[in-house]
Design a protein around this nucleic acid. Structure first.
Lengths: 328, 328
DNA sequence: GTGAAAGCGCTAACAT
DNA sequence: ATGTTAGCGCTTTCAC
């Protein structure tokens, strides 16, 4: 920076002002141009650490997540990263491996880097408990929530998603709609099922216990559950699978019986796991979990929290859009 | 830090030494303990920026990749991150969106953060040309290579992978083996095909042009190609699909004809795209692209390059292991 | 509009 | 074994 000042024939102060677009003092355009030219010629590149030190502000957010398993995580990261960049904030990504010890160490590292806040993202919607040190800095939850509501959070609207899927099937003329659900203990299963019931009732259809199976959340589980459903004396003409992997298995069960999708049996999924939903034949209509958007909203919420514009316990609910393909 | 020194009743120098495990000077264990205790009590946390400034060393590597599309990217990130952590280096992840402008800006940002080196990872194996500024700092390529060989790189051994898949099919007794390949212009297609030919010839089987189809790299493409293959007068008894998505489509074509996998037709894939390979029914035997390992090796290579232990143009080739499931 | 000067938190000679 | 001291590159206040 000294070199730039020298070359432009001005003070370091002036350089600093120009480079940071400060208008506290007025600089002539000519001076500005000279400084900028000098910086360009010298290939000057500000040193982020020095700036962070001087300003006592890192311009970083930390994003902690179980990066391992999840194609989902990458979408949250992307959404958060893009949004953060708009504010010229950068994302430090730390993975927890779903291991409390690793997690603690990861957060510790973020704090050493003096992140201004933390976004804690889960790969499936659930309650989490953060290690105490996460409180040292503003923290928001994405796709998860604090059991005691101590952190702001952004979560998907499972309930509305369940409604949406069911409504779509109803709109296609189905009246006997099966539900292959997830582990009944998790928020996704509860919410989606609730929406399903609600919509059925509103349509004057009494939910039929036989049509609901809490499946094992894999293709195999979906296959087994769909087989059971299809072998019913009065089988459903449509199946709402609470995730795409199970829908994948359901496809096999349906095809095995010589039935056609969607002609004989309509299928609707949940998650929009693109590799599956898009490439299944026929392509799967499904309700999307908007991870990217959740990541972006997480950053928004974090920024608001840091700015003190958000109540400590605000929960943002985000809509799960329906992706129409051809399985309904 | 001053506070810690004060509390421990020693100099800041001593604190710095203890905290950094320096043995240049010998400190009594008692002093060490006192310092450590004071640091713990005060909840002292070193400031990474300050340290980076003072040491002129950031302890960071930059990882640039097209984070968007790829479930693959996440594995490279994981491998690189874990490996970097072993050296107490951290990863700054920047996404390019496959857009040169974004890419340039991303690298610029990394350089401002004074990363010590850059790992440039592609989501599919190909030649790339890096922006000039990437040369300002040691850079290695992962899953891609510089057309002019100016950067060290780690790439998968497509050729060996092609051999491995073909050998597996041969071992299962197949003699008529179809190949549904990728776009013939890309390294993956060239290498895998080469391996396939080689192994066939070694087994005394003349490659049959009819059995080779350059497919469109989607489930649809795989379906079409497999259909063509199966409708041949003398159809293959096994199909080597150059990626798992096409294998997914091939499954449909096979099942549609009332044939069973692997009994009537064996299928082997490539990529080990877990969502597909694992959940397909029957689960797909496939050759894995070891992204995680490539990420780790990328970090190794970068470390070596920085240390001056690597020739500028070294290319590390990494093996693609066979994952046995049940489709062969 | 400019320049001097202090300071951000830490490291590392060097002298003691 | 400990203290002193001079930076690292930048920001920011203040007097000019």
């Amino acid at each position: 920076m000294k070199d730039v000042a020298l070359r432009a024939g001005v003070s370091r102060t002036a350089v600093s002002f120009v480079l940071n677009d400060r208008h506290a003092v007025t600089l002539s355009d000519e001076t500005r141009d000279r400084v900028l030219a000098a910086a360009a010629e010298l290939g000057y590149r500000p040193n982020a650490s020095a700036r962070a030190l001087a300003q006592q502000r890192s311009d970083w957010y930390g994003l902690v997540t179980e990066i391992v398993t999840a194609p989902f995580a990458v979408n949250v990261i992307k959404g958060a990263q893009d949004r953060a960049l708009l504010d010229e904030k950068y994302l430090l990504i730390a993975s927890t491996e779903s291991d409390p010890v690793v997690e603690q160490a990861a957060i510790e590292r973020l704090l050493e880097q003096r992140v201004e806040g933390i976004i804690y993202a889960a790969t499936w919607h659930r309650a989490v408990t953060l290690p105490e040190i996460a409180r040292e800095v503003p923290t928001v939850l994405v796709n998860c929530f604090d059991a005691e509501g101590r952190f702001p959070a952004v979560v998907p609207d499972e309930h509305a998603g369940g409604r949406r899927a069911t409504e779509r099937l109803l709109a296609a003329g189905h009246r006997r709609i099966g539900l292959i659900n997830l582990d009944p203990a998790i928020p996704a299963a509860v919410g989606r099922r609730l929406g399903y019931h609600e919509v059925l009732r509103e349509a004057g259809i009494a939910p039929d216990e036989d049509l609901e199976i809490p499946g094992h959340a894999t293709a195999h589980g979906g296959y087994d559950a769909a087989s059971a459903l299809l072998d019913l004396a009065d089988p459903p003409t449509a199946i709402f699978c609470a995730n795409d992997r199970m829908a994948m298995g359901a496809y096999d069960a349906i095809k095995e019986r010589g039935l056609r999708i969607p002609h004989d049996v309509a299928v609707i999924g949940f998650d929009n796991q693109e590799l599956i939903a898009e490439y299944l034949r026929p392509a799967l209509t499904t309700v999307a979990l908007p991870f990217e958007q959740m990541g972006a909203l997480g950053v928004d919420l974090l920024a608001a929290t840091i700015a003190g514009e958000s109540t400590a316990t605000e929960t943002v609910t985000v809509d799960c859009p329906l992706l129409e393909r051809v399985s309904v």
